[in-house]
Design a protein around this nucleic acid. Structure first.
Ligand code: FES
Ligand code: FES
Lengths: 157, 157
DNA sequence: ATATATTAAGACATAAGACTCTTTAATATG
DNA sequence: CATATTAAAGAGTCTTATGTCTTAATATAT
């Protein structure tokens, strides 16, 4: 598993929030219902994102969470860093210390090339792009309404 | 973490075994000492590889483990499959079920491209290549003898 | 003020992964 | 045969990740 479950949950919620960028605060309960993620657990994950200034939260009636910046300004990578941390992005494939810093392991050359591609991807893709992809998919399948479609994207495990 | 620790341990041990392909059985104790991995734990991991017919084991005096085939015929991927399983190679980046089979998630296109590269790498690299890389590295640093060099590759965490 | 809605924080529970130890089985050697 | 050496198998422990619940804090509305 490349990303932790927490991180995947955070990403799913982010994309959903991005697809409603117009909206005001969305309750975590609504997100967790739609994504089939434990409300309690998702709450913890989104707290991490709030601390990292990716989300803004508001307590009380009409409260909830929303993206702290335009979806086009939040990179895939930002979410990963907020939840799994920077270290998770620079690990040696064989788990040895100091990948890229110390003596490279036998896999380093190949692995770091892949890692570069992966980082480029994470750096270039924004939540906006992910949410647009979602919309396009929806448009191409007119028989399924929006809510339904999001639900099929984010089916329970 | 892309690969489990078990898997990384198995790979490290494999490369070490490959670099001694000439040798007869090597005891797990010797491997665990040289790689700074718990002997008990490594034993379990190598058992999985033996069951998968990647290693051959022999009990009793002068026993141990050795590669079951020439190092050039064992692919990186074979070790990963033996230890982490096939499923680990085809996961959705967002943890959704049926990546590549069911409706793709918003990240699928980008992620599956990366995954293809990764699988190609795992499929094309053999233990022989990894061990040769190791030898080359050694040759370029004459001041450090072989055993020492392996030890610096495989430092404790 | 009081009641209600909501996130934050912290404590707790369960499951999975990582690691350890003990016992058993196979083999070799004297 | 007796003893030593080694991996296999199984049970147990420790740690980390995941998931749940309760209480506190903050905001709104009546
Ligand atoms: S040192 Fe192992 S991948 Fe970089
Ligand atoms: S469905 Fe998500 S990466 Fe393929």
């Amino acid at each position: 598993m490349l990303l932790s479950k927490s991180c995947m949950y955070g990403l799913r919620a982010s994309v959903l929030l991005a697809s409603r960028e117009n909206a005001e605060f969305v309750t975590i309960r609504e997100l967790s219902d739609e994504l089939n993620i434990s409300f309690y657990f998702l709450t913890k994950v989104l707290q991490q994102m709030t601390k990292a200034n990716l989300l803004e939260s508001y307590k009380g009636p009409n409260g909830g969470v929303k993206l702290a910046k335009p979806a086009g300004e939040i990179r895939f990578m930002d979410v990963v860093i907020a939840i799994d941390g920077l270290k998770s992005l620079n690990e040696c494939a064989l788990g040895l210390p100091g990948c890229g810093v110390m003596k490279p392991c036998p896999l380093h050359e190949q692995w770091s090339a892949l890692k570069t591609d992966m980082l480029n991807m994470m750096e270039s893709i924004t939540l906006k792009q992910l949410s647009i992809h979602e919309r396009t998919a929806k448009a191409s399948d007119q028989t399924i309404d929006i809510k339904n479609r999001i639900n099929t994207f984010f089916e329970p495990n």
